[in-house]
Design a protein around this nucleic acid. Structure first.
Lengths: 246, 246
DNA sequence: CGTCGTGTTGAGGCTATTCAAAGTATGTGG
DNA sequence: CCACATACTTTGAATAGCCTCAACACGACG
């Protein structure tokens, strides 16, 4: 067991898991010793595709990824966005074949951890297993909110909700500065995430802008009025579970 | 450690978890020794409510439960149905306050397992922890399908999809007989699950009936043409992970 | 300079909604 | 056994929200 200082990538992973469960020194060392290779991916490139049987787990260092499914009719549904610190295919550790695809929405840096090494770690460290399990549980809460948005909220509410959610998650990993953050998703992609057409996203976004809730220029979102945006999106951050439980 | 034969409820729980991970004799005994109390709940009654801090996990013995969220505007979104063998608030083991409610759609029998006992078991048995973790992972796949349905599938596809899904899940726990199963959800509730109005569910259901895909009388669904129903719902059962992985 | 991706705007149409009301079971008490 | 209440399904009509198609503007980039 080497005792070298963890790389920035390893450090980030350790911080992430420590936000989900208590880790001891051996856990941290085990994580620091994980073999990781880092890759840059272009916007639009898939990191993993529907049907794949992955042998590694991805970990977002920088950029924006998403998970999406395609319908028989050619429709596309984005089911989650993944920001730095996320493990978008954590579940591939348990699934045989991937039931969805993972793609980069912008140029991103992604670290890959071999399943075998991670699986060994999980077997030997109940704390790490617990952290990953909890991560899946929190993600379940996010899915429930997205379902509620797409199923029962108006276009305006959906848009405001997803922006509030992203703001909150970005803030938790230090990616928000002066009420501003990078969100390099196009209106088409936003539509695919919210169950709307890009045209309607456009008009709804204009509405939020003219109402003075935010600005969105290029890839930079600036929140102008948090309280009203939160209200407009029927947003309550509790489900993101940003504090360590138990 | 007592060595009495497990009750039917315990046996059901053991079967469920064995479908998710390999268990050894000690695991099975630990599960058999769990203190369980069983309760009957009327249709329409909540088993747990938004904001609660549960101290027990529910396990469906018989009947139909659902999880749902309410929007600020009074809308309701059902995010999952729970059939016998399901652990609808398995996640409450990790969440502090519940971000949704759990209600009975029909008269049901539900077993309750104290968190403390289950938590102790999970701490001591990596296999049981793994099984519950995997259960959460599979549920994530179901959420992704529901998101895809509500976001990008037509009303007809959504309805056919959820029926195919329920059929498949029911079959896996021996609740389908002669292509028939009990599904005691009203059209209003179905609408709340699919992001539709009850009126539209009604019309769409009539369409599926006149097309000869199924009949739905009272609470009994009869599948008349699986292949075409599957096609109509853009349904591929892979995501339900009904085989033990690894 | 043309092309490509993205954002913006308009017109028209359709899906699914809301509101309203009638029809069908099923249960309850007299 | 009937009158009544309750819950659900079915139908109709009008409307709103969102979509599709189409066109144009704009910057990035080869």
């Amino acid at each position: 067991m080497s005792k070298t200082a963890p790389s920035p990538e390893h450090a980030r992973l350790i911080v992430k898991l420590e936000s989900l469960a208590r880790l001891d020194a051996a856990d941290r060392q085990g994580l620091a010793d994980l073999p990781i290779r880092t890759r840059s991916v272009e916007a639009g490139v898939d990191v993993a595709a529907h049907g794949d049987i992955p042998t590694e787990c991805a970990f977002v260092i920088d950029g924006l990824l998403c998970r999406y499914a395609l319908t028989g009719g050619g429709g596309r549904q984005i089911v989650s966005f993944h920001i730095p610190g996320d493990l978008p295919d954590r579940d591939s550790l348990h699934l045989t074949a991937l039931d969805h695809s993972i793609g980069a929405l912008s140029a991103s840096r992604v670290a890959f951890i071999p399943h075998a090494a991670l699986y060994r770690l999980v077997k030997n460290s109940p704390n790490i297993a617990l952290a990953l399990w909890r991560d899946a549980v929190v993600e379940g809460g996010v899915y429930r909110q997205w379902l509620t948005s797409i199923g029962r909220r108006t276009a305006r509410q959906r848009l405001a909700h997803v922006i509030c959610e992203t703001l909150t998650r970005m803030e938790a990993v230090g990616q928000v500065d002066n009420d501003q953050f990078h969100f390099p998703a196009t209106q088409l992609q936003l539509g695919d995430a919210l169950g709307l057409s890009s045209v309607h996203v456009n008009r709804t976004l204009q509405e939020l802008r003219t109402d003075g809730l935010l600005t969105w220029k290029g890839t930079v979102v600036t929140i102008l009025d948090r309280a009203r945006l939160r209200e407009a999106g029927d947003f309550d951050p509790g489900y993101l579970c940003l504090k360590v439980a138990k």
